[in-house]
Design a protein around this nucleic acid. Sequence first.
RNA 1: CGGGGCGUGGCUCAGCCUGGUAGAGCGCUCGGUUCGGGACCGAGAGGUCGGAGGUUCGAAUCCUCUCGCCCCGACCA
Length: 612
Amino acid sequence: MKQSKLLIQTLREVPRDADVVSQQLMMRAGMIQKVASGIYSYLPLAFRSIRKFEAIVREELAKDGCQELLMPAVLPAELWQESGRWKFYGDELLRFCDRKAKADLAERRRRGETPDEREFYNFCLGPTHEEVITDIVRKNVRSYKQLPMNLFQVQTKFRDERRPRFGLMRGREFTMKDGYSFHADDACADRGYWAMYNAYNRIFSRLGVKFRPVEADSGAIGGSFTHEFHVLAGSGEDAILSCDACDYTSNIEKTEAPALRAGVNEAPMGLRKDHFCTPGVVGQVEQAAGMKDAEHDGMPITQTSKFFLYRVTFADGSTRLVGAVLRGDHEINPVKVKNLIGAADMELLPLDEAEVFTGAKTGFMGPVGLKDVQMVVDRSLEGGVNFTCGANRTDYHHFGLDPARDLPGCTYADLRMAAENDVCTRCGKGRYQAFRGIEVGQVFKLGIKYSKAMSCTFLDEQGKENPMVMGCYGIGITRTVAAAVEQNYDADGIIWPWPIAPYQVHVVCLDPGSKEVLGVASLIEKDLEDAGFEVLHDDREGLSPGAKFKDADLLGFPLRITVGAKGLKEGMVELRDRRTKQVVKFRPEAAVGEVSVARDRIMQELETAGGR
RNA sequence: CGGGGCGUGGCUCAGCCUGGUAGAGCGCUCGGUUCGGGACCGAGAGGUCGGAGGUUCGAAUCCUCUCGCCCCGACCA
């Protein structure tokens, strides 16, 4: 491909609204262009990478007998009402009405009524396709003999994010591979789950990026389990903890935190109310220092406590106040609290309400003496005594808190955020290491949530009707490509992993004005293409070598071949590795051999560096 | 949704405070000189200053409303 004919405009400067590296580089490299907030056009170079990643996904899924289909992007409200998600999904679901509903609405208005427009919405843009696929399967699959079945599509999805950001990584419109499996029983669904888990490992290994499968929170859906696949990158939104001794790797939202018992060797004292006064906003350090009496001249920070008041909402709509108590030096993990309570939704009680309820300013709220609050206590405090806590009186703290005595009926559980260097709860030997990750894939055992709600059933060997057991499996295609950039770049630009590089070799002709030089470059281009390599030939005239090199670095194809009059005087051209910057000189006719060797080396490096 | 910021040629920005009929750099076109890490000279094309209303003899500039975009937070997977 001749670069002079390629639709591309590289930018020297960073577009103002590009905030993350992948977005900056991909915009500067002329790969993507923003059309609206969170909505992008994929220009030819980006589209090539996207297609290549899709091809990897398709190939690996084919190995597991998955069948590809394509469902509509525009979905009728009825299906979503049937699963119950029409009400549940919130504003991320972009809803609208077709002309018929619009006419009905107009008619009602003409009659002077003021109907709620939202009630006329009868379609949405699909953010995911459980409903549609379940509808398809229930209409076409009746017998256990047809199961299991695994179906997927690669499709443009739309989620109306409140705040689109990070370019392709959190856009509103994006390409996703979403797959769904249907099974006759739980054991089969588990096998299907692990088959996809393995397929995803193969996919991301082939992609050539560093990644981790991590255990993730599955929300309040009981009995289900899930793994997320994360591309490791410093700019990742998710925190991941991974044991340095065993395989345990999990999203920090879910990571089990070891109980770090404190206050267990203390002689219990009574609860000393309003024991010390620390005017102003008080931190844990001041709390620790304030714990003084005849036996104690201050206490370690591990003897302090902190307190959070949440309002939780249950699936039936009822609400309750929940108080969570943690050691002062620990961080709360709200997901753990939510799951422990079994809440559908949970919010930190707004500060003004909390102050009215407890009668104290922030920093001085505590669990003692509050009525109608369900108390949950982190297990690090279990069996311990002589903690501090807020006194529910501004500027005052209690000393001598004994949860067992002072918080009757409280529940102990793991409520804190695990931290780097905590001892692993699985093996008890290793310690957690922290990573940042970009979630690019997820495998999820759905169970019978949708098949039950939508009557997706089959007849088993006994002729008995059962709901199918389902799994769902997603890969954010466009997000993965962005994540690959996020992980692979330097000061000069992108460094594409070979498997998804838009082109593999960039032939840079420094003197396209010279027939001889251009001829050699074109010959190399042809030889390489004939040998199966993907080549972009920078044959643009009137640019200085420096400008061409800068563009080549920015575009970041794995290999660059420089063809210039200077080198050709000695009969040589140069091959340069984008990542290592190493250069080898060779004769033009040896291009295919040199590039093949370089490719093999790069792929070798991917295997050892990528994946686990 | 709360808080903050920004909308001026394709891109990055100046001009706004203190109203007087629109600029620079990059990019693009043409001609010429250059040519191994973003060269130079000359000549050009390109903008209803996000939109609407108002104040004024006169608005990119002041006022009001509105739309869009970005950041932080909340939310979400």
